[in-house]
């Protein structure tokens, strides 16, 4: 394998990892507030289809991404209502969201199957930075959504760990009773961050239909939403660490394509299953290593908050 190829794979890892990264960042924000939303797959699909439709109708990428975020956000709002207000089981509601989102995206996207995207995110090399050898090719020769994700990582990290709002967010997920008694509006924050998480998943979906493979194909997320759920655990709920996981998944995916391209005789199906197998293995390792340590998983994750029971 040549050095140039390695660089190409690393650059492709970022390209392929970014949609997962968006979804995972969204889920981190949601889970930090104590809500688990397993419906990422459904929200990504709805984001993908609504973004594509908007792009198709308006030829405006900004509006397309905005609508994709809204699509994901609306689905997350349903999840919020069911689990926060109606206190239903978060696991099952997340599954319902995945199934509903899959159906909804299939329903809405039916007329658009096979249509080419009239607009898509083109690669925009960043002046000067993209000229840096190696680094420039790997990091600064991408589309705008990738650059947006770079910014997002820093913004989210700073927001979660360095601002008052972030402190309230974390407290809501760790000890909602304590947060509530100190005047933090647990219900409102959980709604807010669940919807924000859904919006980011929606943007991740739009990335698929407007950047990686500009078109709409039913079920085009192909499990990336679930990879993102796993990624949150690998990242021990820290946005900065999610980056590595996302690019690792992206890299495995990219490696698969490359190996097929240069004619390595491994079954494509084996390469296809690599990200999922990798997820299982890494999940087991991470779980064993983080058990009994006070890091990561928000204490109240998955539990609906009931004032009376505090």
């Amino acid at each position: 394998m040549t050095f140039n190829m390695l660089i190409a794979i690393l650059a492709a890892a970022i390209t392929s990892g970014t949609p997962i990264l968006f979804a995972a960042l969204g889920e981190i924000v949601t889970e930090k507030s104590g809500v688990q939303n397993l419906g990422l797959e459904g929200m990504m699909l709805v984001g993908a289809v609504s973004g594509f439709m908007m792009g198709y109708l308006t030829h405006n990428l900004f509006l397309a991404v905005l609508v994709a975020a809204l699509g994901g956000g609306i689905l997350a709002l349903i999840h919020s209502f069911i689990t926060i207000t109606l206190k239903a089981n978060q696991v099952v509601s997340g599954l319902a969201l995945t199934i509903f989102g899959t159906g909804l995206s299939g329903y809405l996207g039916k007329p658009y199957i096979g249509m080419p995207a009239p607009v898509k995110f083109e690669i925009v090399p960043i002046p000067i930075l993209s000229k840096i050898p190696v680094i420039g090719t790997i990091f600064f020769n991408h589309n705008l959504l990738v650059y947006f994700s770079y910014i997002l990582i820093f913004v989210l990290w700073f927001y979660i760990y360095r601002t008052r709002q972030g402190l309230n967010l974390r407290a809501t997920g760790e000890n909602p009773g304590a947060a509530d008694s100190l005047g933090v509006n647990v219900f409102r924050l959980r709604y807010l961050y669940t919807v924000i998480g859904g919006m980011l998943a929606g943007i991740g979906g739009a990335y698929l239909s407007l950047a990686s493979a500009p078109s709409w194909v039913e079920n085009m997320s192909g499990g990336r939403g679930w990879l993102a759920v796993a990624l949150v655990i690998f990242a021990v709920w820290n946005p900065a660490r999610a980056v590595f996981g996302a690019y690792l998944f992206g890299g495995v995916e990219a490696l698969g394509y490359r190996m097929q391209a240069i004619g390595v005789t491994v079954s494509p199906f084996f390469l296809n299953m690599m990200p999922y197998l990798l997820t299982i293995i890494v999940l087991i390792i991470v779980t064993i290593n983080t058990q009994h340590k006070h890091i990561g998983e928000p204490e109240a994750l998955g539990k609906s908050y009931d004032r009376e029971e505090r």
Binding site: L167, N168, A178, L182, G183, H294
Partner: peptide
């Protein structure tokens, strides 16, 4: 009413205006 993974400082800051 303390948040266990938070530091003392963070617990004191929680719920404060500023």
């Amino acid at each position: 009413r303390l948040v266990k993974p938070f530091s003392v400082i963070e617990n004191v800051m929680l719920g404060q205006k500023g």
